[in-house]
Design a protein around this nucleic acid. Structure first.
Lengths: 224, 224
DNA sequence: CATATTTCTCACTAAATTATCACAATATTG
DNA sequence: CAATATTGTGATAATTTAGTGAGAAATATG
C-alpha cells in the first residue's frame, strides 16, 4: 500500500510517515501541489493525504489536476477554520478530511478506513531486516554494519548512503538521484559531495570497498 | 468482546446494538455520562462508543472520569459541527470519532479497527514480566529497577523511557519516535528533551549506561 | 497551599560530521 | 600519445549534533 503525503510542513509529513510506516505502508512525500502532481505521474498511490494551504499550488487545485487522470482516494488536511466551508462545497470528491492539529492515530484510522473500502495487499520493503553479503552485514533496524564480524562505526550519511546503494543494488545510480534520495530534495550542494562520501564509505567497509562500483559519467552502484 | 454504547437517543443505541450483536459482540447500554461511569465501574469493556451531547453528564467529562481508572478505547459520536473543535483539542486520547448521521457499517468498521489495533499492541509489547540482562533487572509490572542487586529509584519518565528502549532493544529509535511512543502523540515539545532524559536515565543505571547507545543523527537504542 | 519532586527548556561546550576545494590519479578520446 | 574529462582523495573550514548543568515550569505530595 502506497501513500503520498503532501504538506509543506516537514513535521506533519514526518509524523504521518512514522505512523503509516509502522502499519506497513510505503510512504512518499511531496511538499506542495506541483510536486504532488509530478509524483502522481511517476507512481500510482493507493491514497493521497493532502494539505490545503501550500506554496506554489494549493491542495484543491492539485487534486483537481490529479483527478483528471487518476481516481486516487484523497484525505484532506486543513488548518482549523481555514477553508472549512469550501471543503464541503468542493465539487470534486474528497473521501475524508481532518482538521489540524490532528492526532496521528486518528489520521491512520481514517486512512485505514478509506483503504479498506478498496482493499489490497502489500509487500515487505527491503529497508527492514538485515542485508548480508559474504562477510558484509548491514542491520537496517539497528543501523549496525559488520565487516567480517567486526563492527564498523559509520557516520549517519555513510550509513544512509550504504543503505540506499544496497536497497538499489546492481542498479547504476546517478549522483543526482543519490543526492535526491539520500540528502533530500532540499539539498543544493555540489554533486561531487557524493564522491567524498563514497570515498569515506569505501574506507569504512574494508575489503567490500570494491563492491561499490564507479559508473563513469554517471555515478555509482553497489554490486554483489 | 464487550461494547458499551452511550447515547441518550434510544434509536442510536438500538441500531449499534443490532449491528454489534450480529458481529458477535456483547453490548451494554447507558443513556448518559453518569450511567456510563457506573457501568464502567461494574464491568470492563473492550470499547466504549460515546455520544458527546448528553443530559446530566456529557461525553467528554464521562471519558475523563472513566480514564482515571481504565484505559478503554473510545469511539466518539458527534453531530456535525457540534463540539467539533473541542474534539481535537481534547487532552484525553480519543481513538476515533464519527460524525452523525453515520452509517452503522462505518461505525462497525471503526470499532473493528480500534479493537484489532489494541489487541495487536498488547501482543507485540512484552510490557509484562521481567527483563534481565547481566546485573540489570527491570521489573515491568512492579516498575522496579535493580542494578547489580541494588534497587534504583527512577522517575516515571525515566522508567518509561527505559522500558520503551528495552522493548525495542537493538533497534535504532529516532527522537521523534521515542517522543511519540513514550510521551504520546499530543506532546509538542523539543526533541532534545529526550536527550536530557537519556542523560538522567544513564546516570540512574550505573554501569549499564553504556548500553544506551547514541545513534548519531537519529536518536538512541538499547543494545545488549 | 506550601513544599518537594519531576519534567522541560535553554545555553554553552566539546566533539563529530559534513561540504567544499585543490590537486593527484585515472580513464577516455581523437 | 597528448589532450581532455572524470574520479579519487587529503586537508580543512563550516556546520551540525550530542552531552550537560542550571534553572524555570509543571506536577505531585502532604
Amino acid at each position: 500500500m502506497r501513500i503520498l503525503v503532501v504538506d509543506d510542513e516537514e513535521k506533519i509529513r514526518h509524523v504521518i510517515r512514522e505512523y503509516a510506516e509502522f502499519e506497513g505502508y510505503k510512504v512518499s512525500e511531496a511538499k506542495d501541489g506541483m510536486e504532488a502532481i509530478s509524483k502522481c505521474k511517476e507512481e500510482d498511490f493507493d491514497i493521497i493525504i493532502m494539505d490545503i494551504m501550500m506554496p506554489k499550488l494549493d491542495g484543491f487545485s492539485a487534486i483537481k489536476e490529479i483527478r483528471k487522470t487518476k481516481n486516487t482516494p484523497v484525505l484532506m488536511l486543513s488548518a482549523r477554520g481555514e477553508e472549512y466551508d469550501k471543503l464541503f462545497g468542493f465539487e470534486i470528491g474528497i473521501d475524508d478530511y481532518v482538521v489540524k492539529p490532528f492526532s496521528p492515530k486518528e489520521v491512520m484510522a481514517r486512512i485505514n478506513a478509506i483503504l479498506s473500502r478498496s482493499n489490497k495487499k502489500e509487500e515487505e520493503s527491503p529497508t527492514e531486516g538485515k542485508y548480508v553479503y559474504k562477510g558484509l552485514e548491514v542491520d537496517m533496524l539497528a543501523r549496525n554494519v559488520y565487516v567480517d564480524g567486526v563492527k564498523k562505526e559509520l557516520t549517519p550519511k555513510e550509513f544512509e548512503l550504504l543503505q540506499y546503494l544496497i536497497i538499489n543494488k546492481n542498479i547504476a545510480l546517478s549522483r543526482e538521484k543519490i543526492l535526491n534520495e539520500v540528502w533530500g530534495y532540499d539539498f543544493f550542494g555540489e554533486d561531487r559531495t557524493v564522491d567524498t562520501h563514497v570515498k569515506m564509505l569505501r574506507n569504512s567497509i574494508g575489503r567490500y570497498r570494491d563492491n561499490i562500483i564507479t559508473v563513469r559519467g554517471m555515478g555509482y552502484k553497489f554490486e554483489e
